[in-house]
Every structure is written in structure tokens, then in C-alpha cells.
Design a protein around this nucleic acid. Structure first.
Lengths: 350, 350
DNA sequence: ATGAAAGCGCTAACAA
DNA sequence: TTGTTAGCGCTTTCAT
């Protein structure tokens, strides 16, 4: 049962009558070996069931690996703070494997800060990078830089149309909208629903919610074709404005009760919701931010759809570690994550 | 920015005027060092920001670590097969850290096979064990064996009342029953519900569903006190019997429509459900077995509550690896996992 | 095309 | 109590 894990390159060198050096050459396909020796070595390797010793290899190589995580600086309680919590420098097993995980943050509204963070990453000699493609064009540019330096990178959260990334971890956006609609309506043919949207800012950023909205609308078309669907736009920095807008809308449309938001900011509506309780109202939002989960607990929000940004980060780090340490390329490139349905009854263990 | 990761014990030996050996002694608190030297070394360590090189340490120790995963042999499509899928010998990063993960399986209906599997684990010189406490008394006995051999162990799935385990990963059972009730009723005051239970076998095994059932009943008491709740018992190996029992029950109780099961076998009801479609019926079960997920897709089951047994296994392995490799004890012992709510709209990415 | 040999940073056994 | 030394298994440079 217990494999004799003691077979080393010395054993196979002795067995083949060649030297460690030669064995190493064939092990790494780095040429300069006669066809004959090559085959002999391979044969003995198979025969003896040789397996390389990771520690020795890594020790001898003497490289310190550092994986950079490039995400926006996070306001407390924000989506990106959640993502950042996936960086667990102390307990992540890749740390045990001798890889250092270093966050590099930037201002998500300042493309310049993004550029300079990328430069730092390269300057730090990172062996791999995890990043979220916040700035569309610039992401293309920096990943080309990474490629030029031979630095592999993984995307999280969303994924550009380029192709050089090692892996991607994110939520299936369209489907998440579909799921959201089902949770909002509970499969019933509801009368009306209000979509609350954030007044779009001008920072050449992609809007990750468009696909989600599309999924939502398609579901409604199929399952509740008569449902009246309206949109209002709010400014996240103007709480009173939000109240006013909701007051205004519902005064005019008393027949609509249900509310949905496609970004992580459903918590913005909590004050209004708390002031206008309605046991029949369904409210659905996204992402398990602290404030959103509180809203679930106090009953102002019915359902939250979560995507575990922390796990996305974690998995991306692992994929990179596997790659830089052992050269393993992930079997799939695109990893769509589970979508979590959170209610007040399962929110506690998140 | 780039830390000078080059500080080795040689550096600190030189700096203190002591030798590598002494430095190593203080590093590992293994005594035989004068108070004075100890403090001097510690001082320099801090000063220089020394960090040990994991590779070198592990290489020199020369230990092959093997983590044993002790779970029942899995029929295809069963709960334990799901759990076993958390053993990812090729891609798990702990493998990259040089730890071998080896499954040891046994017959969950044969306590003798469990005993002998445990013996094998010890015989194989395992550095750590992941196990599910299927057999109550015997689990106590074998964990004492593990302890005697200095082998740390983690529980998954459920947790005995003993105390020597390194960590536990499982679902909060009572809460899962509560959540289940909410999903079944959707918070509405339903008229009736049928609990389908497995005729209990006599193998001195614990019944993990009792807590779940308690949570379910408490929810119903609070939210739907008038709901009629019945139990029927079925034999998993007698499909026709199941049909007959359900036919019989619903003939007598046409006012009851909703169905719930607290174990992973809701798929047993699919034939009957498919033959008796009812768009108003809610059916809730547990665990994302392949057959259960298929039932979700074809609409015979409304909701599945999942607990990711594979992730439990994975996390337990990681915890053990951290411990045996780096001596890190998990900050918490008991880890209650997320409960996943699966519907046909989010089942695809599981 | 191949071999020899010097480490990588740490551990552990033995000497002193 | 402390120092010395021989590895752990692999990589890499330099000869040959």
C-alpha cells in the first residue's frame, strides 16, 4: 500500500548508467539528449514509477513566487472588500506551498491609478496576476504587457473578449438575471415590477448588469408577459433623492409592489423599504455585502443572489499557483460559479 | 516593495555569532539554548524579518505526508460519491505542497470494514485523517487510536460529542430544516405537507435527519401552525412500494399536496411525481446528487438544499495540510457550511 | 551529448 | 549549551 516514494533521479541515473544531469534534461524536455538515452530514461522512469520531489525542485530553483491580486481599493462593506477577503495570506494553502500572495489595489474611478498598479505588479516580478477587467481598453493593454513579460493572468468577476488569460472565474450573468426573475416572481404571474438602476457614471467602465437585465427580461417575457416593468434611476450618493424617487414612483403606480436591483447596492433602498413595510412585496438584489445581508435579516429584502467574489479570487489564485509551481494548465478556461440564493433562513452561515 | 526574501538562517547565524544549529533550535523551541542566545536570536530574526523557506524545511525533514480520507465506498450517484469528488488528487493545491491525499473506503453497513480501514490508515502512516462519523461508538474508539498515534483528524458531515478533533466541516442541521420549511411553504400558511422518510435500518448508525426534522417542525409551528403534517415510511429498494404508499396516502388526503424528504433520496419519488404532475405542488429535498438535480431540471422537484460535501472534504484536507505542514491550528474548530438553495434556474452551474 | 560538482536553505545527528 | 557536518532531491553551470 505504502508506495516506496524513495525513487529519486539518482536511482534512475544509476539504473540507466547515465548521470543526474542527463536525467534532468529528459525530465524537462530540454534537449541535448540522444534519442537513445531519452528513451532509456523514460523507460526506467515508468518502470520505477518515479515521481519528482516538489520541495527539492522548488528549493533548487530558488525562486520566490509572488501572485499579485489586482482589484480596486475597497470601501468598507463594498463588493470589492468582499472580493479582497478571498486573499487569505495566512491560511491559504498556496502560502504553505511557498507562494506569496500580494494585493495591489487602485482607485476604480482612476484609470491612471490602475496603470500604475499594473506597473508595480510587473516591477515586483510577479509570477502571476489575478485581475478584474474594470477598465475595458486598459485591461487589454496591460494584459499584453503581462504576456510580454511571460506573466500568466486570471480574470475574475467578468471577462473581456480577449483570449490570453489562463482562467476566468465569474458568475453567469445572463442566467443570474433569469434566476433573479424567478425569485422575484416565485414563478407566479405578477402584475408589476420596478427595476432600480444606478445613474451610470461616465468612467468608461463596462456595465456588468446589462446581461443580467437581459436574462431578467427574457424570463419575464416567457413567464409573466403581462407584467408591467418600469425603470427608475438613482444616485447612490443621494439618499434623500432615492426616497423621493421611490415615493414618487409608487404614488403613481400603486399596483406595482416588487423591486429589483441588478448591482450590489440593494442596501441603498433599505431606509425607504423600512419606512414602507409591505408583507406582500418581494425585493431581490445581488451580492452578499454586509449591509445586504442585514437587510435580509430585518426582512426588508427577500432574496439576495450571491456569487462569492472571495471564492473567485481564491480559485484564481489557486489556478495560478498550480500553473507557476507545477506548470499545470487548468482543464477548463472559463469557470462559471454557483449562484447562491440567500434568504433570511440561510444567511447566517455566509 | 520587493521584500528581500534572501534572509536565511545563515544570515542570522552570522549576525548573532552563533551557529545554524543554535538558530534552528530557537526557531523550533526545542530547548538546549541559553536564555541569552535565545533572546539574541529572536531579536535578530525580528530585526531582519526572517521568514523560513518552506521548501528547504520540508526537503530536509524528508517526510512524505499522506492525508487519509475515510468515507464510505460510494454507489454511483450517491451522497458519498459527491463527497469523494472533493478529493482532487491532481489539482488540489495541497498536492502541490507535496502532500498525498489517499482515499480509504469502507462499507457503510459493515462496521468491521470500517475498523479495518482505520487500521490501514494507521498502518499507512497517515499524517492526518478526514472522516465522517458514521458509526457512533466505533468512531469514538478509532479517533482515540488516531490520537494515540498522534494523528490529527477532522470530521465532516456530522460531528460526535467528543472533543479531540482538529476541525469539523458540516451543515447546520437544525437550521437546514428551518430553511427547508421556508422553501416548502414559501412563507405562506399552507394546508398540509407530507414527510417521506426512509424506513430506518438497524445498523447502529446515527440518524442525521432528526435535527433537520426538528428545525422543520419548529418553523411550521411558528409560521403555519394549522398545517397538517404527516409521515410515511418507504423502503429505498422497493420502487413499486414507494408508488403504492404515495398513491395510498394521497387518495386519502387529497388536501395535502406538498412533499418533503430530509435525506438525500428525494429522487426516489421522481417516478411517482412524474406520473402525478401538479403545478401547485412544492417538493423539497436535500443534496445535489445527480439524480436530484435532474429532478430539479425536469420540474418534479421544486427546491434542493445542498451542503457541498465535496467542499467539506476539501476544506478538511486543507485544514489538515496546514496543520501537518506548518503546524497551524485552525482559528475555529467548527465550521458550518453554507446551505445552498437550488432551483431549476441555478442548478446548471453546480 | 554527457558528466561532475556546487549549491538551494534547512534539519538532525554527533562532537565538543 | 553550542558548533560542525552530512545530507534531503533537484537544478544549473561548466567541463569534457
Amino acid at each position: 500500500m505504502a508506495q516506496n516514494q524513495k525513487i529519486t533521479i539518482n536511482d534512475i541515473a544509476r539504473r540507466t548508467g547515465l548521470s543526474k544531469g542527463t536525467v534532468d534534461r529528459v525530465l524537462h524536455n530540454r534537449g541535448e539528449v540522444s534519442r537513445k538515452s531519452y528513451e532509456r530514461v523514460m523507460e526506467v522512469i515508468r518502470e520505477l514509477g518515479y515521481e519528482p520531489n516538489v520541495y527539492a525542485s522548488l528549493l533548487a530553483k530558488g525562486k520566490k513566487h509572488l501572485i499579485a491580486v489586482l482589484i480596486p481599493a475597497s470601501d468598507p462593506g463594498s463588493f470589492w472588500e468582499l472580493a479582497a477577503s478571498g486573499i487569505d495570506r495566512d491560511t491559504d494553502p498556496v502560502t504553505a506551498a511557498g507562494v506569496d500572495i500580494v494585493p495591489f489595489s487602485y482607485d476604480q474611478y482612476d484609470i491612471e491609478s490602475f496603470r500604475s498598479a499594473c506597473a508595480k505588479v510587473i516591477g515586483a516580478g510577479a509570477s502571476g496576476v489575478v485581475l478584474a477587467p474594470i477598465f475595458q481598453g486598459e485591461t487589454e493593454a496591460v494584459t499584453q504587457q503581462f504576456a510580454k513579460h511571460g506573466i500568466p493572468y486570471c480574470f475574475i468577476d467578468s471577462r473581456p473578449d480577449s483570449n490570453g488569460y489562463l482562467a476566468y472565474f465569474g458568475m453567469p450573468l445572463y442566467k443570474s438575471g433569469y434566476l433573479c426573475a424567478d425569485q422575484l416572481t416565485r414563478g407566479q404571474n405578477i402584475r408589476g415590477a420596478l427595476i432600480v438602476r444606478i445613474r451610470r457614471d461616465r468612467y468608461q467602465q463596462s456595465d456588468p448588469t446589462v446581461n443580467r437585465r437581459a436574462g431578467f427580461l427574457d424570463y419575464m417575457l416567457e413567464h409573466a408577459p403581462d407584467c408591467k416593468i418600469d425603470n427608475v434611476f438613482v444616485d447612490p450618493n443621494d439618499p434623500e433623492g432615492i426616497d423621493a424617487i421611490l415615493d414618487g414612483y409608487f404614488a403613481e403606480h400603486p399596483e406595482v409592489r416588487h423591486i429589483v436591483m441588478f448591482n450590489s447596492r440593494i442596501h441603498l433602498l433599505v431606509p425607504w423599504l423600512a419606512a414602507h413595510p409591505d408583507p406582500e412585496r418581494r425585493v431581490v438584489g445581488f451580492d452578499n455585502l454586509r449591509a445586504n445581508m442585514d437587510a435580509l435579516r430585518n426582512g426588508t429584502v427577500s432574496v439576495l443572489i450571491g456569487q462569492r467574489p472571495d471564492e473567485q479570487v481564491h480559485l484564481a489564485i489557486e489556478a495560478l499557483a498550480e500553473y507557476v509551481l507545477l506548470g499545470k494548465v487548468p482543464p477548463r478556461k472559463d469557470h462559471f460559479m454557483h449562484m447562491d440564493v440567500l434568504t433570511r433562513y440561510n444567511v447566517e452561515d455566509y
